[in-house]
Write a protein that binds this DNA or RNA. Sequence first.
DNA 1: CCGCCGGTCAACCTTTTGATTGATCCGCCC
DNA 2: GGGCGGATCAATCAAAAGGTTGACCGGCGG
Lengths: 217, 217
Amino acid sequence: MGTLHILLVDDHPVVRAGLRAMLTGFEDFSVAAEAADGDAALRELTRLRALGERVDVVLMDLQMGAGMDGVAATAAIGKLDSAPPVLILTTYDTEADILAAVEAGASGYMLKDAPPEQIRQAVLSAAAGQTALAPKVAALLMSRISSPETALTPREVQLLELLATGLTNRAIARRLFISEATVKTHLVHIFGKLGVDNRTSAIALATQRRIIRAPGQ
Amino acid sequence: MGTLHILLVDDHPVVRAGLRAMLTGFEDFSVAAEAADGDAALRELTRLRALGERVDVVLMDLQMGAGMDGVAATAAIGKLDSAPPVLILTTYDTEADILAAVEAGASGYMLKDAPPEQIRQAVLSAAAGQTALAPKVAALLMSRISSPETALTPREVQLLELLATGLTNRAIARRLFISEATVKTHLVHIFGKLGVDNRTSAIALATQRRIIRAPGQ
DNA sequence: CCGCCGGTCAACCTTTTGATTGATCCGCCC
DNA sequence: GGGCGGATCAATCAAAAGGTTGACCGGCGG
């Protein structure tokens, strides 16, 4: 099927160089362009299209120091006509990260410590329109669907994330454009599912179970 | 002074590839070997020495998925006879990471998002026996020593640790055999020093600054 | 088409947390 | 030996968080 044209999006020059070296080492892989954040990624994508050049897969980091982050960029790319598949390649494997990426329309989720061959396979899968998940990620998703009664909804995970940053109920409400009453309702549900009865315990447990990242990480 | 021989230590193949590509792109830089964790780094170092090959600088990540971490490896390398300088190259710029690295004998601390030229200069400085700090890191250290009045007492740190496990004031009081009133007093002091006004923010900030371990870790 | 679930909101009440003030005790350093 | 800071405790008030009940809406699947 010819050469695969890849767009790299990562804020670390070192990581971009590494990915470029790794990918161009594979046959039929070619790095069409690179971007350091989500905004730049969109610009590159439209620029390449204007030139009539193909982009078969976008390889995207989630954490960006500045500018649009990976989730937002993934969602934005998905809105384009005949959008290329976006394969997430990141360091963290928490539920919150994974759920956000999947909701944004990512077609795969790989971890940076994966062996090169696994990454190569994931890129090929994504280009073929299939889903590619790191084994760890797949396991996590499986455990979620096998015990749905205790699984937190995406909204609840989102609440939990804001909770862990130290926001009050009122602040969370304002951030999400909902009422404080709704925040409390969500928290009661979260506490019930986690088996705790206050916010700090919820944060501790959620961090332990890798539902959310450690505060400030 | 001839070619600089560098030992790369990072658990991510992608990052190692990137660094190798970047470094070998510079004149007089050569990657002598690579290692995925601290144990492997020590093995590589002794192996190269047995072969009579030089290692002028060790480029070390702090976070390792498994095996000996960067701080331990740095300390271990420092114990060798005529040990090469260890330059830390990592993602995080938190107090505790930096202090731990410096205490372990690191001769520099750079961040992965630094431009290649800055990394090159840091490697050269380290090889010349000088200290190289990323601007961000230098700024953080300066701000810390200029404001010692915000330092937490050991007792306060202990409170903070229990706080992060999700205990209520009453539970903390029982755990420490003190009254709830005393717990409240401590918390007021902690909040004041950290510049926050509730326990979840205190946990988030303290975790961020690596004053305490992440909840449940 | 109806039921269920996720998300939203409100009222009400109890408990916990946070802020303030003021006090005692002890060890340490000048 | 007087001062200072850390740790301890108490009383009180205000604010935030937590628990309960009940309600409405929209989408999705049987």
